[in-house]
């Protein structure tokens, strides 16, 4: 199921082994193995409810897996909490699906939040960096003192991206970065993501079901199905692979190995 790819010579930044997570009887992640190498941008694709978000939350330490191992730069993070986990998270930047900006703070305070709270930077210095980062994502200084409620979805995403890159993290995570955006704005966000990852020389893990976005921002793509990696390979191999899961998913076919519930009976049987 795995195609040949050319990033295995780089050191592994995120190593996932035997990761399992279930909610009640529903198994979401099933003994999953995955390596993400330094400086690569890996996109995990898959249908709704296949466990993409759960995988991301486990790596971020927001969900505790039932079993398995997650190593960041060789450090085991499963079971870590408190200040040790916080020190691991200082290396992370995260763009949430709906940006998750803090309503009670202005735009620049949102961007500078990690610098001030987690890195102890004085507000004046953090303000300067926040303005720089906002400018990098195409938002002028006039937006700095606005509240998140005054911005459009696309602008919120850009602010979320500025917040994610403000601390110059080693690893970036993107949760459905183009969801809810028009195609043009989706393209803008994708370009900003590619640019940010390159400039920071960061490792990126993205989850999405937007295939155009996945192709634009990834070096490699992994497909998640029934809690396991059904296919993983370089992005350029996506169109040529004979993997039936990829073929069905990227062509949006109803027939194939991916079972989709389309009737009430099916749903009841799940």
């Amino acid at each position: 199921m795995t195609d040949q790819h050319d990033v295995t010579n780089k050191a592994v930044r995120i190593r996932i082994r035997g990761l399992s997570k279930a909610f009640g009887k529903k198994i979401v992640l099933d003994n999953l193995d995955l390596d993400i190498h330094e400086g690569e941008s890996l996109v995990v694709i898959g249908g709704s409810g296949t466990g993409k978000s759960v995988l991301l939350k486990c790596v971020l330490g927001l969900l505790k897996p039932d079993s398995g191992s997650i190593q960041i730069d060789g450090q085991e993070i499963v079971g870590l909490n408190g200040s040790v986990m916080e020190s691991v998270r200082r290396k992370f930047g995260m763009l949430f699906q709906y940006a998750a900006l803090f309503d009670s703070l202005t735009i620049w305070e949102n961007v500078a939040f990690g610098l001030i709270q987690a890195h102890g930077m004085p507000r004046e210095d953090a303000h300067k960096i926040a303005i720089e980062k906002l400018s990098e994502v195409g938002l002028g200084e006039r937006f700095a003192t606005k509240n998140p409620a005054e911005l459009s979805s696309g602008m919120k995403k850009r602010v979320g991206l500025a917040r994610a890159i403000a601390t110059s993290p080693e690893t970036l995570f993107f949760d459905e970065p183009t969801t809810g955006l028009d195609p043009v704005m989706g393209d803008v966000i994708d370009r900003l993501i590619v640019q940010s990852v390159k400039e920071l020389d960061a490792t990126a893990l993205t989850i999405t079901h937007d295939m155009d976005s996945a192709k634009r921002i990834s070096d490699r793509i992994a497909m998640l199905y029934q809690g396991k990696i059904a296919w993983i390979g370089p992005t350029e191999n996506l169109e040529t692979t004979d993997n039936p899961y990829i073929h069905q998913f990227i062509n949006g076919l109803l027939e194939g190995p991916i079972k989709v519930s389309v009737t009430n009976t099916d749903r009841a049987a799940e």
Binding site: K57, L60, G61, L62, E86, S87, R89, R90, F92, G93, M94, F96, Q97, Y98, A100, L101, F102, D103, F113, G114, Q117, A118, R163, F173
Partner: peptide
């Protein structure tokens, strides 16, 4: 804040 993932955002910002 919980349902809009702002609390998750706090965690990811090491707070």
């Amino acid at each position: 804040m919980r349902v809009t993932e702002q609390i998750d955002a706090l965690y990811t910002l090491a707070t």
